[in-house]
Design a protein around this nucleic acid. Structure first.
Lengths: 238, 238
DNA sequence: CGCTTCAACTTGTTATGACAAGTGAGTTTA
DNA sequence: TAAACTCACTTGTCATAACAAGTTGAAGCG
């Protein structure tokens, strides 16, 4: 046979997932079961599972088993330029909750200083937020705000460093530049986001500008690619 | 040691890539070399390489070796709503070329019929395009056009089914809905796009509407996530 | 009843060994 | 000279084996 065994096995499993034999969150056969069912070695059974995990169709948990990835994706609209975590996504059938991980005042790192058009030693507020979806970690947001602009209402920022909070305190956002790209989870990040190594991630980088075209806020939202997609609606006209 | 051997090896290689020991397109040490260097079995060396491939940092070629992925990403702007492959990306330091793979007239598949708001048996033009970047396959575009709208200039469409072509022939596009998500290469697709199994892909789905809010064109661009990112620039104001 | 312990399960890591298959350079052959 | 072949090297596939480590439920103990 031309196609490798582990490919044909993972194809069969993939088909079973897509045809509803195994659905969202179901446990797939264990490696030992696959060995008996298809009469292959553990290496082959393991490789077949690795294919599914690599394709984002399944997640493996040591000691528990391999489970079908919850395939429902949450759509985030890029058309209304709000910072990611502020979106009202409750009506998409997933329970969201925010968690402020850290809030501190630091000197701007080089990359951030460039984006905010400030010198590298200017103080900025750094906030890390965690977005939970049905309890599980779904996205991490890291954002930097020029500290001078938020000094007067820092306690409020600590709770929620969002566009409305800024606007209410005299720092309205008029313009947002953003970029969407795809990366992969490395070993360090997998601790925070609870995703396996090599798992695909979407990165949403943004820089928000005030009315006078001065950059105010810069940050990135790193989300699980299997749980998020981005939508937009544009009018033609250059 | 708490961290597995294959992790520490791939971390070391990753660091060497990031610090410039190996740069874009360089060949990484062979599995046998890793076995001798780190005194590990081939399984461990192989796993370390698999980590890098899984993270998109390297690509393996049978018989040749493992090479550092060309890390330069091409930015596609979502702000000017043109169909993906029409963009002028020549100035980003990559040589682009288009290739029309197929052009045929078929009955609209179910999913397409829904998007184009037509019945499932309405004829549509189906075009597949391949975008080459420096010779290598970078993206595949599959688009469907309501056949009735393009009958008069079908030969021209076959060469380039693009927004300007449509506009020149009295079918201007005024509005585009789009969505960006991330998937993974499956075994079938890897043939066409020349990417390894499990490789991350960006999918850009779009539906273009004419002035009277009628859907005209629907399609998707599937691109290598390690070569593409999407940018946008939005004005605030709901 | 509640807690602890343990055994049976799971996936993760790693070693050794073998053959298949693609690549490329050098050598042989026509 | 040019084509064909061989050989060394590469990654891909697959088997057997063992131990580590996380999970879970059942059995036993206080």
């Amino acid at each position: 046979m031309a196609t490798p065994l582990h490919i044909s096995i993972s194809k069969k499993l993939r088909h079973q997932i897509e045809s509803g034999v195994y659905t969202s969150g179901d446990r797939l056969p264990s490696e030992h079961q696959l060995m008996e069912t298809y009469n292959v070695s553990r290496i082959t059974a393991r490789q077949a599972m690795a294919n599914l995990v690599s394709q984002g169709l399944a997640i493996a948990y040591r000691g528990k088993g391999v489970f079908v990835t919850p395939q429902k994706k949450v759509t985030y609209s890029l058309s209304s330029p709000l910072v990611f975590l502020e979106q009202d996504m409750a009506r998409q059938g997933v329970a969201f909750s925010f968690e402020s991980l850290t809030f501190e005042s630091i000197c701007a790192p080089a990359e951030v200083a460039v984006a905010l058009e400030i010198s590298a030693d200017t103080p900025v507020y750094l906030q890390r937020k965690l977005l939970r979806m049905d309890g599980a970690a779904g996205a991490v947001d890291v954002s930097y705000l020029i500290a001078e602009l938020g000094q007067r209402f820092a306690p409020q920022l600590e709770r929620q460093m969002t566009f409305p909070t800024l606007a209410q305190n005299g720092v309205p956002i008029e313009h947002v530049d953003a970029m969407v790209e795809c990366t992969h989870a490395d070993y360090d990040l997998s601790d925070h986001l609870e995703v396996p190594l090599g798992h695909a991630l979407m990165v949403y980088r943004y820089t928000a500008y005030s009315c006078d075209r001065q950059p105010v806020l810069h940050g990135a939202t790193i989300s699980r690619a299997d749980r998020f997609c981005y939508s937009l609606s544009m009018r033609a006209g250059e």
